[in-house]
Write a protein that binds this DNA or RNA. Sequence first.
RNA 1: GCCCUCGUAGCUCAGUGGAUAGAGCACCGGCCUCCGGAGCCGGGUGCGCAGGUUCAAGUCCUGCCGAGGGCGCCA
Length: 536
Amino acid sequence: MNAADALAESIVNELRALGIDVALRDVHLERPARKEHGDFSTNIALVLSKSLGRNPRELAGELAASINARPPRNLEVAQVAGPGFLNFRLRPAWLHEALGEIVTAAESSYAAPDLGHGERTQIEFVSANPTGPVHVGNGWFGAYGDALARIMTRTGWSVSREYYVNDTGGQIRLLGESVLARRRGEVPPEQGYQGEYVGEIAAQYEGSDDVVEAGRFAAEQILANIRATMERLGIHFDEWYSQAFIEESGRVAATIEELRSRGHIYDEGGAVWFRATTFGDSRDRVLVKSNGDATYLAGDLAYHRNKFVERGFHRVIDVFGADTHGQVASLRAGMEALGIDPSRLEVRIGQMISLVSGRMSKRSGNYVRLDTLIDEIGPDATRLLSLLSSIDQATTLDLDIVKERSAENPVFYVQYAHARIASIKKVAFERAVDTRPIEAVDLGLLEHERELDVLRTLVDLPRVVEEAAVDRAPYKLTNWVRRLAGDFHSFYHDCYVMGEGVAPDLTQARLWLVEAARIGLSIGLDLLGVNAPDEM
RNA sequence: GCCCUCGUAGCUCAGUGGAUAGAGCACCGGCCUCCGGAGCCGGGUGCGCAGGUUCAAGUCCUGCCGAGGGCGCCA
């Protein structure tokens, strides 16, 4: 049993002894922000005081006295603090035991709680339209989606990464028109695509003057390019799902028929309408235009029906940009109308990424290619840059500042910690330092505050991974990795592992501490999709 | 007009309803006899405004102000 569980159990038992019945799950132990407040603290006395009509400090005092009289394993002392908190200081042995557990579990199973129980989950992200190269705006959340997939996989979900390819409709025709115009040596239409890439594609295009044929040809070229960019970032999609396929396979028509049979369709003005207001949307929506074309929403409903019903995903997480969040209400309404529990669809809205020169747009040609950013600062720094903060945070990128700061990018700070670890191991090997199995090492020698700080951070990893998974918030893991790297750098500076005057037994203990730090960094960086190099 | 997200230090951002709100960058000082100085140590009164809920609010609720995004028979 770990220290927190033993503490919680003791709290429940001692409360019962005082005649207060409380469930184990209602006892919340947290790791205080300030070290002076001990290793764990609980607000249970504050929570209970109201219903019991008792003074919280007094209650906490009684509880502390009982716990101190029969202390659980490794507890040094329980103390009342502030308005009625109960703080617990543990003996360092609890951290030494944790170190043993970390090293034993190692990368494969430390901080890998099964929260998802194998639930089949699809994460759809990026899905940038194949009408131009992926840029730092529409590609920004690629690292987010991929890191989330990694984190949820580690925590027991069965995750599939998906890219929805919008390869049909008006924009493809517009793309085709732009290509054909370039081939004729003309400027693309005003609303068309102005980027240089259109000319490059036009030079390769040998097909007919049909706008759809030209558009699809261009979309294929562009998609191959997007795929290559994603690969550079280490992002591999399990599925590239085509909107054209959804339409041409009859699924759109079938979805509309199902809605009709459920009574949610009416015809008006030559168009087919979905009565979305029945399900909370702000207005009804057209599914088939009067010209006979399906709308984007019709395709999207068919697509999501395909995800849930045909492919059997129990949960779908769509990562959208704020510019398309307007479609969410309609999509949810459609799911409900189709008899699919809308709570199975999770939509994460990422705020907009813009340039100092203004909003990015493929049509106008004002954008920075993701490839360009990767060329400038490398794939690891590119990924971490977008994983530093919550996706709720709107970001304005100044490429000059990003480049300038790339030398001080947090990614180097973290990777440098990993490289130092590798270096220590290398030196240990070169000097033929004897390495004993952990059972034969006195970990109790690890008493330096720097050593304990590293351990304290490492024991937090399981909780951090869990939070990152449940909150769909990879940046929480980024924060943790940076904290661990900082703790390690401080340790490295103050505690020589093999320096002069370091007792051989202490060297042994520190080598295991270093190994645990390596495991933690390795897990964290892997979940973020960032390399953990041995040399820099 | 209605809806969504966000306002925290000069800048970029953390902060599961808890205790004295923290990091990085920038700026100013220190620190290399040891395993990599891409490092370490020190220097800090800032939660947009006003109410409310609570033992406790940066965090939850309401209103206002400000920023971004949406509200198509576009995708």
